Amino acid sequence: MQERLAGKSILVTGAGSGIGKAVATRFAHEGAAVVFSDRDGAAAHRAAASCRDAIGVELDVSDEGSVERAYAEIAGRGIALDVVVANAGVQLFGHDAPVADLDLDVWKRTLDVNLTGTFLTVKHAVRALRGRGGSIILTGSPTGLTGEGAEFTAYSTTKAGIHGLTRTVAAAYAREGIRANAVVPGYTETPLVTSISDDPESRAAIVSRIPLGRPGTPADVEGIMVFLASDEAAFATGSLFRVDGGMTTL
């Protein structure tokens, strides 16, 4: 297999499980040196152990001190990053709700991880990439584009914010050779969504809204992430790349 990312060093947040782990593992198989990071440091180290030329780093995206320490550890190991994937996120099923029913604490907890955490990851990514350029990839959601997330006010709002942050960062740093794009996975079965995938009625309802007729898997997201991390995407910035089985076409 051609190694499309040979010679690149990549940081992925939320890489202890789900989409983040799958994407980081694919990056390693494509020849990249990969930093698996996660709030659960043990999970990050376990995931990295299965790949060549990979390390695990504990990183809580909602805590700027933790973010700064992680980037400093990466630099201290002599790793000059080329790509950062801001993927870490939460969805508080059973707590997130339509706006009139949403507790302030749930709102704050979701924003702290999803939006503030993405902001902090990208802030320090830009600092790490300056002078050389590179690619920043953010993980969005159809809930930030359509009414798909009507029952999840906090989550949907954070994802809409991530889409806006993508465009802002792309515009601000294009002349420095730093690209920013968002990947927008549809309903993807990972540990994040077990409250849906374990409920046959809920699962059937959401799958019925996907024109391709099936849920997504983490593997479905890998290819577009590899493209955006690679030099093949050198002219792509400020865009949202939908990998949702057609969900947002409805």
Rank of each mutant, 00 (worst) to 15 (best):
L120E: 06
I210Q: 07
E222K: 12
S62H: 02
R4P: 11
A128C: 03
E189I: 09
T237E: 04
T217H: 11
A54F: 01
G161E: 09
D198R: 07
A180K: 06
A42N: 15
T143H: 15
G89F: 00
T116Y: 12
A233Q: 05
T118Y: 06
L138R: 03
T158H: 04
T143N: 15
G134N: 04
E201P: 00
T188S: 12
D198N: 15
G78T: 05
G131R: 07
V169H: 10
D101F: 12
D198F: 00
R26K: 14
S156G: 10
G14W: 10
G20Y: 13
V122C: 13
G140P: 12
T166I: 02
D231A: 05
S141Q: 03
L212A: 02
P142A: 04
N181P: 02
A70S: 04
S141V: 02
T188V: 11
G41R: 15
D60G: 02
T118G: 10
S202M: 07
E232F: 10
G140D: 05
Y155N: 01
L138T: 15
G246D: 09
I162L: 04
P98V: 12
P211M: 13
A75R: 12
A172V: 00
S135G: 06
G134P: 01
A97E: 00
I162F: 03
K108M: 08
D220L: 03
L129Y: 01
L104N: 11
A28G: 15
L138E: 04
Q2M: 12
G246V: 08
A75T: 12
S195T: 11
K159M: 04
I206K: 05
A97K: 02
S239L: 08
E176G: 13
L102Y: 12
A15S: 06
V83G: 00
V126Y: 09
